[in-house]
Design a binder for these strands. Structure first.
Length: 688
DNA sequence: AGTTGTCACCTTTAGACAGCATGTC
DNA sequence: CTAAAGGTGACAACT
């Protein structure tokens, strides 16, 4: 293997020293191949290699090489948490004067500073949003690194990724692109699309052994032949054996409920192996003490945990940290962890290779399995990793082995062709001035991965979308209207913008609930689902019907959808009327993490509604602003003055208000009372 | 009368980006 | 490709 010293030909000695300080002495074979294929040149690269086989370092070296030559780099990732992780990792280069920045929806370096940074880490949506909001520094890029480029295949978010790449290429004609991907069969297509050298390899620093389990036996492929070896009679015994050997286990379940109950079950086995996790268990209850949090906390004490999108962020972080430290022995997760932050374990167990998906219970994709299996084996800690799929019978095991162990992951297919995505991006292209004619649009789309993969052009669809956007008053003759520009910058679906505008044009006044419902009628809102026991919602609907501006007949096709909108609006209504979080969660059948996410989305949409109302000089603008603030803090209007103060949230504000303290002045004058209510140290903090 | 056990039937089902301006209990 | 876990309620067998 190539020694890192060889890199000093291309990079300074200091860079090599920093690598050595990080314990990197030699390059992995794929990294070496990248060097051979032009890492230190201007060539584009597509690196399609397994997780944890050194992709990030390849990108890092290329970025440092670029920065030394005076260039500027953008590194895009699919998740906020990943952006944070990379930002931390790259910050080590500040030692040699490289400036690192981060920009995501929830965390951002100061704007003027981003322009000065050598490397900026963003989510792909945020990068697109920055383009829409005219961040000029994005026109001075020399290197773009796209992490997890195989997500172009994602039906929801893949289109943005390829449009972003095409946009940045157009704005920076000499832009070098390095794309990092999981191992996919058509990496060559992506490479050809990007005019890039392809580095493709199955090499891993820690070998991965894949098995299919049925009671008593494990199946595996060896030299192309299926072999059966003796095994434990149950998965629980297998897990216990791993723990006895000093390893940790990551279990993937198909539903939250299963993940939670298996974590509880397995905690009966992990408790023998755990030392003292009481601090982690406490941390889990710090922000929320609801049913789920208590269950999680109990598991943690006994050395297990579950992990899904219903957890609060702080809880996720605490669990991930404790697992990394080896204090949580078995982690039971839904697919959150498959593509999320890096959390390897010696053994990965797939309790179910099938998952319910819009009406059917179907096997997961091979690529999804590979993603999860890839989490097995901690580099430097485990000699090897093992991934085990659980089945019930030998017959089933044989089929599963054929499909997942011998099978190839699915090809990456562009999803840009759908109307929603084309509408969303066409408006942005016109708004940003990237396209100002029909030909421009076609030209642009001809540079996308969709165009590379498909013979036909999107001519017909684009014509229709242009007409649509014109009808909605967002563009006129391929030029954006101020309304269109606003919608594009707000990063909402044009349809959402249109729904807002329409409703505002029809009504001078709207109730709080109607405003919340309006937001829920938008395609950008995530809706709660209706369950059998949700009959109370229709009763509530009877009571509140007067407040709404839209309610379809009970017999109409959209009634079910309407009920979901209404339920979601009610949930938000409870939130801004200071209903306790745990009570809301129970009433609507959601977890604390869900509530936060829904509120966050609602806040963004209420903000958008407000901006559009302002744009139209509509008198509901001030009401929307109030609701935006109320959503942000989860309070009634009377608390808004208090909640603006630092260190005062919905609960403290309510206590103060009920004691007659209604703003900062009252607080200063009645300091004693306040100290009694919320503690003197907190009052001190607020006043300072 | 209250508790426990059994069985059939019913219900439910993963994830998470974006604006804006800075910090909850 | 078309399940399965967990909850619920009815009912019987216990203490």
């Amino acid at each position: 293997m190539m020694n890192v010293d060889a890199l000093s030909d291309h990079l300074s000695k200091y860079v090599v020293d920093i690598l050595k300080k990080r314990g990197i002495e030699r390059l992995y074979p794929p990294q070496e191949e990248a060097v051979r294929k032009g890492l230190f040149s201007n060539k584009n690269l597509v690196v399609a290699i397994p997780t944890a086989s050194g992709k990030t370092l390849i990108a890092e070296l290329a970025m440092i090489y670029e920065v030394i030559r005076g260039g500027k780099c953008l590194y895009t990732v699919p998740l906020r948490a990943l952006a944070g992780e990379k930002f931390e990792e790259f910050s080590k280069w500040e030692e040699i004067g490289v400036k690192i920045g981060i920009s995501t929806g929830d965390y951002e370096s100061r704007d003027e500073w981003l322009g000065e940074c050598d490397i900026v880490v963003t989510t792909s949506e945020k990068a697109d949003s920055l383009l829409r909001n005219e961040a000029s520094w994005l026109r001075n890029l020399s290197l773009l690194v796209v992490d997890e480029i195989h997500l172009i295949d994602s039906a929801k978010r893949g289109a943005t990724l390829e449009v972003l790449i095409a946009k940045l290429k157009k704005l920076n004609p000499n832009l070098r692109i390095i794309a990092l991907s999981a191992t996919i069969p058509n990496a060559d297509e992506i490479a050809e699309w990007l005019n890039a050298e392809l580095i493709k390899s199955e090499w891993r620093p820690t070998p991965l052994y894949e098995y299919v389990f049925y009671p008593g036996r494990l199946l595996k492929f060896e030299n192309g032949f299926l072999r059966e070896v003796k095994a434990e009679s149950s998965i629980e015994r297998l897990i216990v054996r791993t723990l006895e050997e000093g390893g940790q286990v990551l279990v993937f379940e198909s539903t939250r409920r299963n993940a939670e109950s298996y974590a509880v079950k397995i905690s009966g086995y992990t408790k023998e192996f755990v030392e003292d996790n009481s601090d982690v268990a406490e941390k889990v209850l710090e922000e929320n003490e609801g049913e789920m949090s208590r269950k999680l906390s109990e598991c943690v004490k006994l050395g297990s945990a579950f992990h899904h999108a219903g957890l609060l962020n702080s809880q996720r972080v605490a669990i991930e940290k404790a697992f990394r430290e080896g204090r949580i022995k078995v982690l039971v997760a839904t697919p959150t962890l498959a593509a999320g932050v890096n959390l390897p374990a010696r053994r990965v167990i797939l309790k179910s290779y099938r998952r319910y998906d819009s009406g059917a219970y179907a096997p997961i994709m091979v690529s999804e399995y590979k993603q999860m299996a890839g989490r097995a084996g901690r580099p430097g800690l485990d000699e090897y990793g093992e991934a085990i799929i659980v089945t019930k019978t030998r017959d089933e095991a044989l089929k599963v082995a054929e499909r997942y162990l011998a099978g190839e992951p699915e090809k990456v297919i562009s999803k840009l062709g759908s109307e929603t995505h084309l509408r969303f991006h066409t408006l942005s292209l016109i708004s940003e001035g990237i396209a100002s004619s029909f030909e421009d649009l076609l030209d642009f789309y001809s540079t996308t991965f969709f165009a590379y993969q498909n013979e036909f052009t999107l001519e017909w669809e684009i014509r229709r979308i242009v007409l649509q956007l014109e009808k909605w008053g967002m563009i006129v003759e391929y030029a954006p209207t101020s309304f269109g520009k606003l919608v594009s910058k707000l990063y909402i679906d044009p349809l959402s913008g249109f729904i807002f505008k329409e409703e505002l044009s029809k009504f001078d006044e709207l109730s709080d609930l109607a405003m919340l419902h309006l937001i829920c009628r938008t395609p950008d809102m995530e809706l709660l689902s209706i369950r059998k026991a949700d009959g109370w919602i229709e009763n509530e609907l009877e009571n509140l019907r007067e407040e709404l501006t839209y309610y379809p007949s009970i017999y109409s096709a959209e009634y079910d959808f309407f009920l979901r909108e209404f339920k979601t609006a009610l949930c938000l209504y409870d939130w801004i009327n200071e209903r306790d979080e745990d009570i809301i969660c129970e009433k609507y059948g959601i977890a604390p993490g869900d509530l936060r996410r829904i509120v966050e989305t609602a806040e963004w949409l209420m903000h958008s509604l407000r901006r559009i109302a302002e744009h139209l000089s509509h008198n509901l603008a001030s009401k929307a602003l109030k609701l935006e603030m109320r959503l942000k803090y989860g309070v009634k209007e009377e608390l808004l003055d208090l909640v603006k103060l630092k260190n005062v949230g919905r609960k403290r504000a309510r206590k103060l208000y009920n004691a007659g303290i209604r703003n900062l002045e009252d607080l200063i004058q009645n300091r004693k009372i306040a100290e009694k209510l919320i503690g003197s140290r907190i009052v001190e903090k607020i006043l300072s």
